[in-house]
């Protein structure tokens, strides 16, 4: 029982799991009947909000409330009403822009550098200690240094994305290039293909699947890190928005943000998945 489960069966089961989960959630957060708010001064309640005035906490919203809020947000995702009030679409766009810039710069640096490292055992050994030490560092640890030296929070966030995206791409490119089949290189040598032609026509396509896998890992990490980075630098972005909604105690918005972050991350991964399929080859 592994491979061919018909799609409708798995999709049906997924829907069932989802509805059980949402149903249980809805029931769990239903307001308790008979909450004693009788002797409440209406002016006090108006001032603080019903829940706070009763001494309670903000209730966890149920799926129906979140769904209503989601429709509200999606009805106008791109509004801009001042720096602290912008639509969720605008926030996601800011985050994507930062991830795109950081990831793009990292690719521009990591792929050529990985290529050179992969082709030269000497450079491979020489760069290896630096990579090994820097790779496990949480990208957020770079943030203070970035803020200090760049003195711009927006660019610092991009830098953090850059630094976290670079390692998987660098290592995968170097590995992919270094493990190009010897016989293909020998073919190129006997054809006197030359360095450049060999690099473009033989090594690059041979290593492309490994390189794209590295890019896929990188974009996943970058999307993880951007939320945390934006919580720190603030201003715009989905990470900032989440933190802002926490300050506003808009639990529904936080749940929606989680959902959105997941969906955008999925889309980014699928995008590079398409790229992987485009460069895949099979013996």
């Amino acid at each position: 029982m592994s491979a061919s489960v018909p799609f409708w069966r798995s999709a049906g089961l997924s829907l069932l799991i989802l509805s059980i989960f949402l149903g249980a959630w809805e029931i769990a957060v239903m307001p308790k009947a008979g909450g004693g708010g009788a002797a409440l001064d209406p002016e006090y309640a108006a001032l603080l909000g019903q829940a706070a005035a009763q001494g309670g906490t903000t209730p966890m919203p149920g799926p129906s409330a979140i769904g209503k809020r989601l429709l509200e947000l999606l009805a106008d995702p791109f509004y801009v009403r001042g720096p602290n009030d912008q639509g969720i679409g605008v926030q996601i766009a800011y985050s994507l822009l930062r991830v795109g810039a950081g990831f793009g710069l990292a690719a521009i640096v990591a792929i050529p550098l990985g290529f050179v490292i992969g082709m030269s055992p000497l450079l491979n050994a020489a760069f290896n200690p630096f990579i090994q030490v820097l790779r496990p560092v949480s990208p957020l640890a770079w943030m203070p240094l970035a803020l200090y030296s760049i003195k711009d929070s927006a660019i610092s966030a991009v830098f953090v994305i850059f630094i976290c995206s670079i390692w998987p791409m660098l290592l995968n490119t170097a590995f992919g290039v270094a493990s190009v089949r010897r016989e293909w290189l020998n073919v190129a040598r006997t054809l006197e293909a030359g360095r450049w032609r060999t690099a473009i026509r033989v090594i690059l396509p041979a290593a492309a699947p490994t390189i794209v896998t590295g890019m896929r890992i990188s974009i996943g990490i970058a999307w993880l890190v951007i939320v945390a980075a934006e919580m720190l630098v603030g201003g715009t972005g989905i990470g900032y928005w989440v933190w802002n909604q926490w300050n506003n105690l808009s639990i529904a918005d936080i749940v929606i943000a989680i959902l959105m972050i997941g969906l955008v991350g999925l889309a980014l991964d699928r995008l590079l998945g398409l790229g992987a399929r485009a460069v895949a080859w099979r013996e």
Partner: peptide
């Protein structure tokens, strides 16, 4: 020109 033992064709 060399004909290699394992054809050595580029699969892409």
């Amino acid at each position: 020109a060399v004909v290699f033992q394992g054809h050595a064709l580029m699969p892409w």
